[in-house]
Simulated assay, not measured.
Amino acid sequence: MARGDGRLTHDINPYSPAPQDACGVFGVWAPGEEVSKLTYFGLYALQHRGQEAAGIAVSDGFSVVVYKDLGLVAQVFDESTLASLRGHLAVGHTRYSTTGASTWENAQPTFRTSASGSGIALCHNGNLVNTPELAAQAAEAGIRGAFPTSTDTDIITALLAARPDVTIEQAAMEILPTLRGAFSLVFMDETTLYAARDPQGVRPLVLGRLERGWVVASETAALDIVGASYVREVEPGELIAIDSEGL
């Protein structure tokens, strides 16, 4: 059964010596920049939010490539790996979970090929409470038995990828209102970076500006480390899209 990625609230126990299950998400759209390295540094600044696994997806405008593994950010990525992840937009994730096995399959970003042939990579910080209903919705869409992970994140990705007749943005506008619980999402296809936040704004998500691009992240610390200036929070219930036309 698919399970959530973390808590339903953003409360962190200051007296617990264990890592806290917050998860960190990062996304960047910046032509001409080394986006894989920017994402690496952003995730490094968010390492305190998740220590089980780390992953990065990049696109060069033609295809999406995902690299992820168990371990800390500095253990998963080295110079040669980052050099191979070339493109102008990227998303990344650091994972800490209380439910769902700590396995490679559950590491993020999750990836799906859409019904129209586009690649979708998605990073999720949150926990949904209507996963069975979403799984049933996925089954109705013909995605039967297609979930290799034990998280709700893959179901979200699958639902976004299931519609051949609409764009990813249009699919997101239809799917996001059906999600119940706390979530901040950063996802991408070959050309566009997307970010979304649940209507209650339980999970944090901020927007930053680079000289030649945009950044979204769980915390402003990730903006600072890549030299991005803070613009604003992503509003509760908001979906943003960033591409060659801008924000």
Rank of each mutant, 00 (worst) to 15 (best):
Q108S: 09
T99K: 03
L223W: 01
L72A: 08
L247N: 14
P236G: 00
S114E: 13
E52L: 03
S244R: 10
A196E: 13
S184K: 05
P19C: 08
V206D: 12
G227K: 11
G119K: 14
I240N: 11
T192W: 12
M188P: 02
A101L: 14
D243W: 09
T113C: 10
N13Y: 05
A146V: 06
E79W: 01
G237R: 11
A107R: 05
Y67S: 13
M173R: 15
E233P: 10
E174L: 06
A107N: 05
G27M: 14
T9N: 07
S97E: 02
P148H: 07
Q170K: 04
G208A: 06
E245I: 00
A139F: 12
M1D: 11
V166M: 08
E34R: 01
P14G: 09
P14W: 08
A222R: 11
D165P: 07
P236D: 01
R203Y: 04
D198Y: 03
G181T: 05
L179D: 05
V216D: 04
S36G: 05
L193K: 03
S229D: 08
V166G: 05
L185P: 10
I225Y: 15
S80I: 10
Q108Y: 10
E133S: 10
A30G: 09
I155E: 14
P204A: 04
R112I: 01
L207P: 04
A217H: 04
I225H: 14
L179P: 08
V215E: 11
A158G: 13
L210V: 06
L159K: 01
A115L: 03
L207Y: 05
C123N: 13
A136P: 09
I155W: 11
A53C: 14
Q20N: 13
D198S: 02
C123I: 03
A196V: 10
L207E: 05
S36A: 15
G142D: 12
E33C: 11
T81H: 04
D21M: 04
I143T: 02
L82W: 00
E52W: 02
D154P: 00
G50T: 09
V234L: 12
F147V: 13
A182H: 12
K37T: 13
T167P: 07
G117P: 13
A161I: 02
A135H: 00
P109Q: 10
V206N: 12
G213E: 00
S118L: 09
L72K: 08
T149N: 06
A241L: 08
A171P: 03
L239E: 02
N125R: 11
V216A: 00
T192D: 11
T103S: 15
M173E: 15
A115S: 07
G32W: 00
G237Q: 13
I175M: 14
V206A: 13
S84W: 02
L128F: 15
K37M: 12
M1W: 10
L205W: 02
V66M: 02
I225F: 15
Y40T: 15
D21R: 07
G126R: 03
F41N: 01
A101Q: 12
E140K: 06
D224N: 13
S63T: 15
G92V: 03
H48W: 01
G55P: 06
R112L: 00
G181D: 05
T113Q: 11
A30L: 06
V28A: 08
I168L: 15
S102N: 10
A121W: 01
L46R: 11
P236Q: 03
L89H: 09
C23Y: 03
G71D: 08
